[in-house]
């Protein structure tokens, strides 16, 4: 299964390397979301820097929706999905492969967004003074990303092949990602406030979410890929 996953992930990432959609379209969109938040919230009132963690993760979620739309779209072109099934690759492997590709793209987006938030929102990083805080940020980001990627891949497959996918997928996916938003924001807030201890339980929560959705994906992807 892992070999199949590597094949799929490699395919998606090579496609991205050549088309550069995430880099040239999704990343600028992510930064645009940050800018829009700055227009909506008065930068002088301090609301922006207080809400930085939450706004960061909201921007990640919106960008994530675009990334998964892209991931699903590349399969729909030119009868790819039929070809995919005919290859006889393990469905679980396909799931892991697509999720890993999306996760890696999201991590790149998060680095970009992180820089954006730090610079644009004057988010106070004083709290990030200990290895524990840095570790908290990294663990939370990794696990949140894993959970987002797993859930997105499942719901992307549910909505795949439908003409209304562009409008339906966000509606289906975003409510599901709400627990990740809550957990990741709380973890980041704890890290930025210097109270890393409060953040680690949320990291455990993010891990639970990721595990649950990884399991669901492995269990159901076979059914989801079938066309008839």
């Amino acid at each position: 299964m892992f070999r199949d996953a590597a094949i799929i992930a490699g395919k998606d990432l090579r496609l991205e390397a050549r088309s550069r959609v995430v880099i040239s379209q999704v990343a600028p969109f992510a930064l645009l979301v940050l800018v829009l938040f700055a227009f909506a919230l008065d930068p002088d009132s301090g609301a922006l820097s207080r809400a930085a963690s939450g706004l960061f993760w909201v921007a990640v979620l919106f960008s994530g929706v675009l990334a998964i739309q892209r991931s699903v779209a590349v399969e729909g072109a030119d009868g790819n999905r039929d070809a995919l099934r005919l290859t006889g690759l393990d469905p679980g492997g396909i799931f892991v492969g697509k999720a890993v590709a999306v996760a890696l793209e999201l991590l790149v987006l998060e680095v970009v967004l992180g820089a954006g938030v730090a610079i644009l929102y004057n988010a106070t990083e004083d709290g990030v003074n200990s290895p524990s805080s840095v570790g908290l940020l990294i663990c939370a980001a990794l696990l949140a990303t894993a959970g987002i990627a797993a859930a997105s891949s499942i719901y992307g497959a549910i909505a795949a092949g439908l003409r209304v996918r562009e409008t339906l997928l966000p509606l289906l996916l975003l409510p599901v990602l709400a627990p990740v938003l809550i957990g990741a924001t709380r973890a980041f807030e704890a890290a930025l406030d210097g109270k890393a201890g409060e953040g680690w339980p949320w990291v455990a929560w993010l891990a639970l979410f990721a595990i649950i959705y990884a399991a669901v994906g492995l269990a159901t992807f076979g059914s989801l890929l079938e066309e008839s």
Binding site: I154, A157, I158, A159, G161, L162, V164, L168, L171, L172, P175, T220, S223, L224, E226, E227, S228
Partner: peptide, 21 residues
């Protein structure tokens, strides 16, 4: 969201499986 998915016409067996998930 579930009802939105179910309103869409599609090949019954595949669609009902996705809706079931």
């Amino acid at each position: 969201g579930y009802l939105a998915l179910r309103r869409l016409p599609a090949d019954p067996p595949a669609q009902s499986r996705r809706a079931a998930v």
